[in-house]
Simulated scan of single mutants.
Amino acid sequence: MSTRRNNRLSSREIDIAIEPLEFNTLSFDAACKLFLGGAERRELR
């Protein structure tokens, strides 16, 4: 006999699900500088 899954969320799980997401965004130039800096450190350039 298989056990049915409980689909109820705890109050903590609900809090996590409704928290707004925060994104750290970079400009294209800043992203390129980070990418190229990493490539240079790894001697890929």
Score class of each variant (00 low, 15 high):
Ile14Gln: 05
Glu22Trp: 15
Glu19Ile: 02
Pro20Phe: 02
Phe35His: 10
Leu26Asn: 04
Phe28Cys: 15
Met1Ile: 15
Asp15Gly: 00
Cys32Gly: 09
Arg8Leu: 11
Leu21Asp: 01
Leu21Ile: 03
Glu22Ala: 13
Glu13Trp: 02
Phe35Pro: 02
Arg12Ser: 15
Glu40Ser: 07
Ala30Tyr: 00
Cys32Lys: 13
Ala31Asn: 06
Glu40Asp: 12
Arg5Cys: 06
Arg41Val: 08
Ile18Asn: 04
Ala17Lys: 02
Leu21Gly: 00
Phe23Leu: 11
Glu13Asp: 12
Arg4His: 06
Glu43Asn: 14
Ile16Gly: 04
Ser10Met: 07
Gly37Ser: 08
Asp29Met: 06
Phe28Ala: 09
Ile16Pro: 02
Thr25Cys: 03
Met1Asp: 04
Asn6Trp: 00
Phe28Ser: 13
Ser11Lys: 03
Ala39Asn: 08
Ile18Glu: 08
Ala17Ile: 06
Thr3Ile: 14
Phe23Arg: 14
Ala30Ser: 09
Leu9Arg: 03
Cys32Asp: 11
Ile18Cys: 03
Gly38Asp: 10
Ala31Phe: 13
Cys32His: 09
Ile14Leu: 02
Glu43Arg: 11
Gly37Tyr: 01
Glu22Asn: 08
Cys32Glu: 11
Glu43Lys: 12
Met1Glu: 01
Arg12Lys: 13
Arg41His: 12
Pro20Met: 03
Met1His: 15
Leu21Tyr: 01
Asp15Phe: 03
Asp15Leu: 10
Ser10Gln: 03
Leu26Gly: 00
Arg8Trp: 06
Arg8Ile: 13
Leu34Arg: 14
Asp15Thr: 05
Asp29Phe: 07
Phe28Gln: 04
Asp29Pro: 04
Leu21Phe: 05
Leu21Lys: 14
Gly37Trp: 01
Glu40Trp: 13
Ala39Thr: 04
Lys33His: 10
Leu26His: 05
Ser2Ala: 08
Ile16Gln: 06
Leu9Ala: 04
Glu43Gln: 14
Ile16Asp: 05
Ile14Asp: 03
Gly37Thr: 15
Pro20Ser: 07
Thr25Ser: 02
Asn6Asp: 08
Ala17Gly: 00
Ile14Asn: 01
Ser10Pro: 01
Asn24Trp: 10
Glu40His: 13
Ser27Gly: 13
Asp29Val: 13
